[in-house]
């Protein structure tokens, strides 16, 4: 089926089967590689994108469910985004595979006022896993970005 999606404020037409997951559309059709399918079961968050500003797992999101919604990937954040800056400055990454998903989750946490304490940030990172184990610095970076 042909669907129109709004990705990073750009309108794109793609032809996909309904059971195609959004992450595959982003990667294979649109060449956006920051969304990555790692677990494919909604648990790890490397495929996180913002749907109308709220984080969702694009590995489990059937593409047509995104029709009419704003999809934001890390490429769609403004150049001077505070979260991006704090992650970079604090060196809150190792391999980096999980980081775009972390950044988007953090963006939402900050936008909705739920990044006030380290405890709250750790709760909010639920479902964003980092096998390199960068949580300490990630939490610090988000705390700083929230200020």
């Amino acid at each position: 089926m042909k669907i129109t999606l709004s990705v990073n404020d750009r309108s794109v037409d793609v032809d996909v089967a309904p059971s195609t997951m959004l992450v595959d559309v982003l990667r294979d059709e649109l060449g956006i590689t920051s969304a990555r399918a790692t677990c494919g079961v909604g648990l790890c968050g490397t495929c996180t994108v913002l749907l109308d500003g709220r984080p969702v797992s694009s590995c489990l999101l059937m593409a047509p469910l995104a029709i009419g919604k704003r999809i934001t990937t890390v490429e769609g954040l403004p150049d001077d985004d505070a979260v991006v800056r704090c992650f970079s400055e604090r060196h809150a990454f190792q391999c980096g595979f999980c980081i775009p998903g972390m950044v988007l989750t953090a963006r939402d946490m900050i936008d909705t006022g739920r990044a006030n304490t380290p405890e709250e940030i750790r709760e909010g990172l639920g479902g964003n896993l980092c096998r390199c184990g960068c949580y300490v610095k990630i939490v610090d970076a988000i705390e700083e970005a929230a200020r």
């Binding site: 956006i32 590689t33 920051s34 969304a35 990555r36 990937t73 890390v74 490429e75 954040l77 150049d79 001077d80 991006v84 800056r85 992650f87 970079s88 400055e89 060196h91 809150a92 990454f93 391999c95 980096g96 595979f97 980081i99 775009p100 950044v103």
Partner: peptide
């Protein structure tokens, strides 16, 4: 992939690094 500003975003943070899977 981003123009270097005063504090350039690390490519790992903004999805700008190509891993094997992206080649």
């Amino acid at each position: 992939r981003r123009s270097p500003g005063p504090s350039p975003a690390d490519p790992r943070v903004v999805g700008g690094l190509d891993y094997s899977i992206d080649h």
